[in-house]
Design a protein around this nucleic acid. Structure first.
Lengths: 366, 366
DNA sequence: CTGAAAGCGCTTACAG
DNA sequence: CTGAAAGCGCTTACAG
């Protein structure tokens, strides 16, 4: 009879080696490893000695296969924010591997697609789902997760659902502080470009801006608030509108970096220097913020940490679900920072502003 | 007889479920999953359908337990290209998990840091390293990997080292084809903004531009070639220089999107419409290309596929190394595509161009 | 307190 | 090109 060739490649000692060395069964070794108490003290000591002698380390793959304690969670993303995604993945993967959690990353194309991909993931054994923006702001998506009772954590969204947790920064507070920062520089007429109506963050950022102004006694009408939709294109139009005001702002705070960049472009076309003639601030701290010139003062979100926190939160929920515990939804807020760069400055003095306005008018006439 | 209670906790589909669904043996499913080629096309299709239907994901623990051949590789990146990174991760992770390879993603801050992180990875059991740009263009990094005899694959770099493989697109060919595209639109004076001197791709892109012009009998002096360094800022200066020529170009081909975007900005400041008055093309197809207005015509690199290919190549090299085989370095070229968008058009007719030039001069004098 | 048996989900080695 | 069998290293469920 030919001997079947062994399949072992590494020759690390196994639980059976330890058992043989200690003169017990593998089961007993397993008990000792796992700290179960129903093992006679002498037996335990003997096993520990054998472990020591052989330099035994349990095989992780075998453990999680046998115990079925591995958690698989999914990260479902749609295309828009690629720069965002990279940080998300870095943070998420790190935390997942640390806790022996398998993170399945899936892309979907449309909103419709997202729902079917989510259901396929769940059908495929994924026990919880991580939803980054912009998916985390789609009511249908959240409703689906909610009604299918799938543990889920929404990132950078505070959409409240009973059984969905979230991790985000305090958009209201961040917008408030940015506005304060601009006020402290000496600005009195501060324009604002809003974000997309159907993202929750948009409203919060606007509210932060409003409250900071009100608190400083600078409330003015609605003319300094221009509507945007988070796209560069919409920022172009919104900035245009602000500059055409009879008394244009000396600073513009846009609800994201794309629109802030668009504002800088429009300012340049009109011959305004940033920040000497105009302060422009953004939100999000995407790659664009440090690509263009001048680099944008903006709000930085700790995306990597948010991803880590989201993984932890989700793992906790998945375990709770396995144990059939009820878990209330939890909304975790992480700290943002105000990244100050080259696009802000005190307002131009009155003389320079008059010169400018004259120049612009002259060009129009010419 | 009492039925023994099942131990399965999650009810994820297994390889047997897929096999049953597809009407084959688990072995065949395993072959399909692992991309072995000795499976009939029809069988393979059927298995893939079953996988899709059930939403099957292989259990990692079981795989690595059974195969005992788990490979750990590292992806070492430095900060610059975040949008790039996300695609890299998506492609790399997917392929890695497919082949049961553990991908350790590590970030480093500086070039110096990169070297120590690389060595730490290797000391910690990582058997091969993936190097994306801009690290893949740093001679010291490559030399280190080379001399420490660590299997490595450089992405988007064709730096030749004996034992380092690479995956990239044909930068020369891509630049050649973009230049041809601009010529075919009718342009005769085509400006070029170069990339950073110390990246290999820069030279190749320039050569592609040069050869396309020469072939079309359009070679002119060096005046239409402006030096850039891949940054937005350097693009601003380079574009400025091109526009100040006595006979400025009607089209500008920048060596990357950042500099193309800068060119658009400068054109706008000078009152030139893109693409009516000026065609601007970029390279890389980063997020910026579709953020700004007009969206840029540019060269798209299949980054996700490059990452996949890089993982495969690296795994092959790690295995070869385990078996103590010699493997010569391999340089794999993938296909790029020319993404045509809104920033290119035929050259303005002569009349309009004269008007423009007059306007610009008038502004200067005024 | 201890152990024999079965099984986790996959792959290797072999046979057709 | 396909499959039956054995085994990876551990744990669960059960029986003493």
């Amino acid at each position: 009879m030919k001997q079947r060739q062994s399949r072992r490649q590494r020759n690390a000692p196994t639980i059976s080696d330890v058992a043989r060395e200690a003169g017990v069964s593998p089961m007993t070794v397993s008990r000792v490893i796992n700290g179960e108490r129903n093992v006679r003290e002498r037996t335990r000591a003997e096993v520990n000695r054998a472990i020591e002698v052989l330099g035994y380390t349990p095989n992780r793959a075998a453990r999680s296969l046998a115990s079925a304690d591995q958690i698989i969670i999914g990260l479902l993303y749609s295309n828009p924010s690629a720069a965002y995604l990279s940080e998300l993945l870095v943070g998420g993967l790190e935390q997942a591997s640390r806790h022996n959690i398998q993170l399945v990353v899936e892309k979907c194309d449309s909103e419709k697609d997202a729902e079917s991909v989510a259901m396929r993931l769940v059908a495929g054994g994924v026990e919880g789902i991580l939803i980054p923006p912009p998916l985390s702001d789609q009511p249908r998506m959240l409703n689906l997760l909610h009604s299918s009772d799938t543990p889920a954590v929404a990132i950078a969204s505070e959409c409240v659902r009973e059984n969905i947790a979230s991790v985000s920064i305090d958009d209201y507070r961040a917008a408030y502080e940015m506005t304060r920062h601009i006020i402290d520089l000496g600005h009195r007429r501060i324009g604002f470009i809003t974000g997309d109506d159907n993202q929750v963050a948009s409203g919060r950022r606007l509210a932060g801006y409003r409250d900071a102004l009100a608190e400083a006694g600078l409330s003015h009408g609605e003319e300094l608030i221009a509507e945007g939709r988070f796209t560069y294109r919409s920022g172009l139009d919104a900035a245009q509108k602000l500059f055409e005001l009879d008394s244009p702002p000396t600073a513009v705070f846009a609800s994201n970096d794309d629109m802030a960049a668009a504002t800088v472009a429009v300012a340049h076309r009109r011959g305004l220097d940033v920040p000497t003639d105009l302060t422009v601030c953004g939100f999000d701290d995407t790659a664009l913020a440090t690509t263009i010139w001048p680099e944008l003062t903006t709000i930085h979100q700790p995306i990597i940490e948010m991803a880590r926190a989201a993984v932890d939160l989700l793992a906790e929920r998945v375990r709770a679900r396995r144990d059939e515990e009820e878990l209330e939804s939890r909304h975790q807020l992480l700290d943002f920072t105000l990244a100050r760069r080259q696009s802000d400055a005190p307002p131009p003095d009155e003389k320079r502003r008059t010169e400018q306005r004259t120049r612009v008018v002259a060009e129009k006439l010419g």
